[in-house]
Simulated assay, not measured.
Amino acid sequence: MLLLLFYLGDQLYAIDSLRVVEVIPRVNVRKLYQAPDYVAGLFNYRGRVIPVIDLSLLIQGKPCSLCLSTRIIIVQYPGKPEQRDYLGLMAEQVTDTLNKSSVEEPESVRGNIIMDGHRIIELLCVESLFPEIEQLRVLYSY
Rank of each mutant, 00 (worst) to 15 (best):
L57T: 02
G79D: 13
S128L: 13
V39P: 02
P25F: 01
A40C: 01
V109Q: 15
P63Y: 06
I24R: 00
R19N: 15
M115G: 08
L129W: 11
F130T: 12
Y13E: 06
R84K: 15
D37C: 02
V21L: 12
L18K: 15
G79Q: 05
G61Q: 11
L58K: 15
I53G: 05
D85T: 07
P81G: 07
I113H: 12
A14I: 09
E134I: 04
L89A: 07
Q83Y: 03
V27W: 01
V52T: 10
V109S: 14
G79A: 06
S128C: 04
D16C: 00
E127M: 03
V103Q: 15
G79E: 11
V52R: 01
I74K: 02
Y45S: 00
I120M: 11
E105H: 15
P63N: 05
S69F: 03
M90F: 11
V27G: 00
L89Q: 09
P106T: 13
A40S: 05
Y77L: 10
E22D: 15
E22S: 12
E122C: 09
S56D: 11
I120Q: 10
K62D: 04
C67F: 04
C125W: 07
I113A: 10
D96W: 04
L98M: 03
E105D: 15
M115I: 09
R46F: 01
R48Y: 10
T97C: 02
E134R: 13
E132F: 09
V20G: 12
S101I: 07
V27T: 05
L68E: 13
S65K: 14
L42M: 13
D96N: 09
F43N: 05
A14N: 08
T95E: 15
I24L: 00
D54R: 06
L98Q: 01
Q83P: 00
G61V: 03
Y77K: 10
E92K: 00
D54Q: 05
P78T: 12
A14P: 10
D54M: 06
F43R: 05
N99H: 13
L98A: 00
E134V: 06
S102W: 10
V39Y: 09
L42D: 03
E82K: 11
Q34T: 06
E122G: 02
G41M: 05
D116H: 14
R30F: 05
A35G: 03
R71S: 15
V126H: 08
P51C: 06
Y45K: 01
T97F: 13
N44L: 07
S56F: 00
V126M: 06
S56L: 01
L98R: 00
V27S: 02
M90N: 04
R84W: 04
R110D: 14
K80W: 09
V126R: 02
